[in-house]
Design a protein around this nucleic acid. Structure first.
Lengths: 302, 302
DNA sequence: ACCAGGCCATCGGAAATCGTGATGGCAGCC
DNA sequence: GGCTGCCATCACGATTTCCGATGGCCTGGT
């Protein structure tokens, strides 16, 4: 006995007529006849009296009709609950960050998701591209902002924007760096990031083109910490251009007039989890915030 | 979504393991995997997280599990109710009679059915073979006792016993009928039954063999009425032998020393209704009372 | 670091089930 | 007696489900 048998039973009982019932059920009259027969055989009970005028519910059939309706109603409740679960996402998503909240538009992200999916919780985990990637791989993070290329086939990522970078120097170094060329810059102390950070790759490529290697004085894997090191005079550093511009306006930093390649800011997760309804909701919302298409993985902003 | 999907869902949730669940469900692991996948796709909800250790219910899956259990429980209730209906017959059966209650063992019939099926009601309708046959055909009777042959293909019948018949005469006619031969008897007045009554056929065949026709003085379609006519001196009549013997013992009737052919007492119903559970119960009970096999229709007692 | 075992997902083919169009039997109506 | 309406059956095709084989991935043990 399956639910379609019960649906047929109830419909025939309501119509009292196999052909009309088959029309309501979008099937054929012989199919309805066979289903009723199969149900009667399995139950061992005659549900209908066959008359030349149609199907007449028997006393037993009348008794079982209520039970059939109850079962179908229960199944419908399950379907409705599934629909509400489908529409209302429940759970939490742990997202790795790699730069400041304002730049990553986290306030708008949280606001949008809180409105659409009140029971979806975001957990923003401070981190860096270099720390986030392995955390993604082992499932410690559900998704993450990262910068730079992303060639790991296990990861799916969407390019949100191209980050413009700039070299920041301590404000006190303004005069001494006026005429500095690349080689001169390489002899200056630098605040490094970890090697798997996109900024590090940009720095490496800057000097490799001129055959020199910068000197590391300190490593800061977080942009705030890196900015603090540069402000404190411990060296030069590569930061997001708008941060350097803001620091210079406040007299904290000096922006060197150089053009650096851009770095893709991406939102990434494990490819196998890309269809997870929770992650899909976050990805969709982020794509909306950044004006990015999400149909399929995007390796470059459109 | 069908009930077997829900059964699989609940079993997997309980086992947390596809292979163990498939064993419980007497199916294969790929079948269980496919059923869960199909259910998830239809519901649009991920029910389980797949882990290397087995299937872990998601929050959504946990929510829907209760609804699935409710639906399955409701279906089980229907099955249980069907079983109880199958065992406990409900309804009424209208039975046509053609002779006295004692002979037809109606007391034992009622007692047996009342015990076995308390909610099955019998309605005994006084009648005769001749009246009962058409009433059967048009559904006015559900079943009936009849006597004689039963060649109508629309009817199924079971032979209960062979009735022994005898010619009854008024007690006052004892001396005048001592040396009466068949022709002399034909010249006597007779109490007829209707033509479709088995007794009529026996009477006809009695005289046809001798080329004479009895004279009808009155027609009585009921054995009590016929007996009353004979007692009253209105003519001879053919009755069940035991009734005539009893009448003679009481001085009411005179039994003529003649041997008549027997007549089959049958229990009949429409062939198409022979499988009706209510009628089956009655037929089975009557067969038990009369020591008659009911596997298939019996045209002669075994 | 490598290997074996456990677990789930997929595939191609077979088996089972279901639905369909055609048709027949029966009852009721004219 | 003929026609219509209704349900049951049949042979066949379509669809669904299941199965055995197999692969991918993860975990634990060595």
């Amino acid at each position: 006995m399956e639910l379609y048998h019960l649906r047929t039973f109830v419909t025939v009982a309501e119509e009292g007529h196999l052909t009309r019932a088959s029309e309501r059920l979008f099937t054929s009259q012989p199919a309805v006849s066979a289903q009723i027969k199969a149900l009667e055989e399995e139950l061992g009970v005659t549900l209908f009296d066959r008359t030349p005028r149609g199907m007449q519910l028997t006393a037993a059939g009348d008794r079982l009709l209520a039970a059939a309706r109850t079962t179908l109603s229960s199944a419908d409740s399950l379907l409705h609950e599934a629909r509400s679960l489908r529409d209302e996402l429940i759970g939490s998503v742990r997202i790795g960050l790699n730069t400041d909240a304002r730049f990553l538009r986290l306030i708008a992200l949280q606001a949008a998701l809180a409105e659409r999916h009140p029971r979806l919780e975001l957990e923003f985990m401070a981190g860096s591209t270099g720390a986030n990637l392995p955390a993604l791989r082992i499932g410690r993070l559900d998704a993450s902002f990262i910068s730079g290329a992303c060639d790991d086939p296990r990861l799916a990522s969407w390019v949100l924007c191209e980050e413009e970078l700039a070299v920041a120097a301590p404000a006190a170094w303004r005069e001494r760096l006026v005429a500095a060329d690349v080689a001169a810059l390489a002899r200056q102390p630098w605040v490094f990031t970890s090697e798997d950070c996109a900024h590090y790759g940009v720095m490496r490529s800057l000097f490799e083109a001129h055959g020199c290697t910068p000197r590391k004085t300190v490593l800061a894997n977080q942009e705030d910490a890196l900015a603090a090191m540069v402000e404190g005079g411990f060296g030069l550093g590569i930061m997001r251009r708008e941060l350097v511009v803001a620091g210079e306006a406040e007299g904290r930093l000096h922006l060197l007039p150089m053009t650096l390649p851009t770095v893709s800011l991406r939102f990434a997760c494990l490819r196998q989890r890309a269809d997870d309804p929770l992650l899909k909701a976050v990805i969709t919302t982020i794509a909306g915030l950044w004006g990015v298409a999400v149909v399929g993985e995007q390796r470059r902003a459109v």
